[in-house]
Design a protein around this nucleic acid. Structure first.
Lengths: 356, 356
DNA sequence: GCCGCTGCGGAGAGCGCTCTCACTCTGTTA
DNA sequence: TAACAGAGTGAGAGCGCTCTCCGCAGCGGC
């Protein structure tokens, strides 16, 4: 009992693996017919079909992916790529990492779940530098994956274009920094920012401020501009802003800076929840009550939104549905003879909690 | 320029893909020799080797994974399985998900990075129910992956044993609930809890309490017992505890309950940082100052530890190194003829911040 | 009654690779 | 000089699958 049974059963499992040939023999038909039944191509007489199905069940046959993909040029695999994960490659003391923002976990989780029923397997890859980008590109170019789902985190990332260059289907999360012929899903970021502005103004805020994301990232810019636009329509000609980098720490720093520049602030729109959390801490440390002295609206509606005190009022980005749509678009593109470049834009909603 | 260049370049890429045969022709040798050079098996004359390498460079040859794995029975792929992710399968309003605890992201991130230089690709899979467990098992059984890296989140999970049953190499994160012949990495959880107890006692706490994890999970039990053991050695015969489930919300609930049972509490050990965050909120809502009235020690040293106010004093679990070791153990096991079942235990350290 | 058509099954090639086996060619030894 | 290692190379089988091509029925139309 204490001896590991792994080795013998390992060989067992391997030896036992039935092939098409075995199934054909049991069913008394040819290999080709079994293949046809399994793949549902062409018509097979119902009687024969049944016999084959029984033989499959009896032998416990499962197609060999490698053999199949050798001839079909399809792998049943897609690359899920996170670009700009920028974590310490040594992994030594890498506390932060990509996944410290729950956003990426939400995307990846939803992707995996959507792909699963289609029997398409996600290979997770990070691209941080030229070398790892190269790995991703050649992985795709040489047909190791049927397509790619890419989440890129910075504006001048060359990877989206490089992937398009491989000719493989690809779907991006969020519009790329520069226009390229690739499909993407995105959020109507400006609309979300308008919701935030309207909410802040409606609750009586008179002096607004914004903590934005990096301004070369389209979504960050859209959020800032959307907010300013809505504020302007209500008479607020100018709204000061400080750019963060979507991290908790940058939210703290930006809030401190903003407070310095505009001490009379009573309403702040923050471009994501993680920065909003940092901002709230800084406000509280400066003796400002949230929302009584300063109201805060975040963005994302990530898990951290309910982990702050007060709980965050925030613009909900339906990340899970967006990821789902991404996966579906990619699957469609893989199946299509003539893949079409298309986009799908989601509408944000305001989730009102306690911070504004 | 606005027409997508994808289609033609796609066919290009596919058509161009050079095979061993092509390289052999260019080098003026046989296919077998090229294969030998590429795989570094057996001796090849230096001169020939050079010619072949040049031909490889000239043609841009990259081996076809499918063809190779068809004959070698190796896929260059490992399954990274998270079991008990228990998220809403519809994905509809799934805000929480597995990745809301940064722990999983840290594990997965480190795994991916460790595997990468070995050219082994991680396929991410979630197992939530009998059906999805079955998918994982047959994926492995039929040789679609060379091994599995499993993070299981609950004690009576049947998956570890099922995976062992496939005969494939597997390495677990944390000792399984029931003894099975599988390798694992783990933390000396009791030692970590002892560090927490000693720290709390040393700073003068007189009335202790514990928020533990689910008590059927070995690591949670070890932490509780380690803490009680160390407390007992310092004269604290009994320490009250309430079990949470490692989530933020359960931390809030457990703290409220604990406060109810022992209002005089002045030191609490919480089994992970996420619950500690919830506990701090509840304490503050009850007018207790942290750490002045109640000191808190968390566990994990996850990113949330620096996102709480006060910042968390916590027991550091070197998750990244543990994941790295996991990956290495699996790689070794895959390469070994006779895979050995082994374990690797890491030592925790105390990270002192502001909450205790 | 013959032709052509359609509908279904089988034979067999071939995807790109690895690996065994046999062969050649050198250099060494009796 | 013959015999023999031993090292390096090539030929070819075969991994498990798909898919094209071909054959063989059965059937309606002239």
């Amino acid at each position: 009992m204490s001896k590991p049974p792994s080795k013998p059963s390992g060989s067992d499992a391997r030896r036992a693996a039935p092939t098409l040939e075995d199934v054909a023999k049991v069913a008394g038909v040819s290999r080709a017919t079994v293949s046809r039944v399994i793949n549902g191509k062409r018509k097979v007489a119902p009687a024969v079909q049944e016999v084959v199905l029984e033989a499959v069940a009896e032998t416990g046959y499962v197609p060999n992916r490698a053999a199949r993909s050798l001839v079909t040029r399809r792998t049943g695999t897609v690359a899920v790529v996170i670009s700009g994960a920028d974590a310490d490659p040594s992994g030594e003391l890498d506390l932060s990492g990509v996944f410290s923002d729950p956003f990426f976990g939400r995307v990846v989780g939803s992707l995996v779940r959507t792909l699963r029923p289609h029997d398409v397997h996600p290979v997770l890859m990070f691209a941080d530098d030229e070398q790892t980008r190269g790995q991703v590109v050649s992985y795709l170019r040489f047909g190791n994956a049927d397509g790619a789902l890419l989440v890129s985190t910075y504006a001048d990332d060359p990877l989206p274009e490089q992937i398009v260059g491989t000719g493989r289907p690809v779907v991006l999360f969020a519009r790329p920094g520069h226009p390229i012929p690739a499909s993407y899903v995105d959020l109507a970021n400006a609309d979300g920012a308008r919701l935030a502005a309207t909410h802040l103004l409606d609750r009586g805020c008179r002096t607004l401020g914004v903590i934005s994301g990096p301004l070369d990232v389209p979504s960050a810019r859209d959020r800032l501009e959307g907010f300013r636009d809505a504020a302007a329509r209500r008479g607020h000609a100018f709204v000061p802003s400080v750019a963060g980098s979507f991290t908790f720490e940058s939210g703290e720093a930006a809030m401190a800076e903003l407070l310095d520049a505009a001490p009379g602030l009573d309403g702040v729109f923050v471009s994501n929840d993680l920065m909003a959390q940092g901002a709230i801490h800084v406000l509280q440390e400066h003796g400002r009550r949230v929302p009584d002295d300063v109201a805060i609206v975040g963005f994302d509606d990530s898990p951290v939104a309910v982990q702050t005190r007060p709980r965050l009022t925030t613009v909900r980005q339906p990340v899970e549905q967006m990821a789902q749509e991404m996966a579906r678009m990619l699957l469609d593109q893989i199946d299509a003879d003539e893949p079409a470049v298309r986009s799908s834009i989601f509408e944000p909603t305001l989730v009102v909690r306690d911070s504004a």
